[in-house]
């Protein structure tokens, strides 16, 4: 096993752990805003690690660049979608969950 494969394995496994954490967050967090956070961020980090892990396995430069392009596109996609969902939820009056009883401004 060479050093490239080792790097690849480490990044891929860390990425998979982030995906698991994102899913756990999605199931456990109390309201749509916190769930959005779990999904949009932790999963994005998971995808980031997966992409970097695969970069080490890429047979040629063009493929590596394409993976980076896909990753960047997905980052922009997640950010846009989560903003739209959160804004729409606010407009529809989905009340954010609070740890203690507070008055929402």
């Amino acid at each position: 096993m060479n050093i490239l494969e080792l790097c690849s394995i480490v990044f891929l496994v860390v990425g998979a752990i982030f995906f698991l954490a994102g899913t756990i967050g999605l199931l456990r967090f109390p309201d749509v805003y916190t769930r959005l956070q779990a999904l949009a961020k932790v999963d994005n980090l998971g995808l980031g690690f997966t992409s970097i892990g695969l970069l080490f396995q890429a047979p040629e430069l063009m493929i590596a660049m394409k993976i980076i392009l896909i990753w960047l596109l997905t980052l922009v996609a997640s950010s846009t979608i989560s903003f739209l969902i959160a804004r729409r939820a606010m407009k529809r009056g989905v009340i954010p969950w609070r740890a203690k009883e507070h008055i929402i401004e």
Partner: peptide, 26 residues
């Protein structure tokens, strides 16, 4: 900062007591 924060949120999701204190700021 996305790495730093991602680890924090992932840890929040995994640990037994999530200890969330969400709020909205203007």
């Amino acid at each position: 900062s996305s790495l730093k924060g991602g680890i924090a949120v992932a840890w929040m999701a995994i640990r037994p007591n999530p200890d969330l204190h969400p709020n909205i700021y203007k």
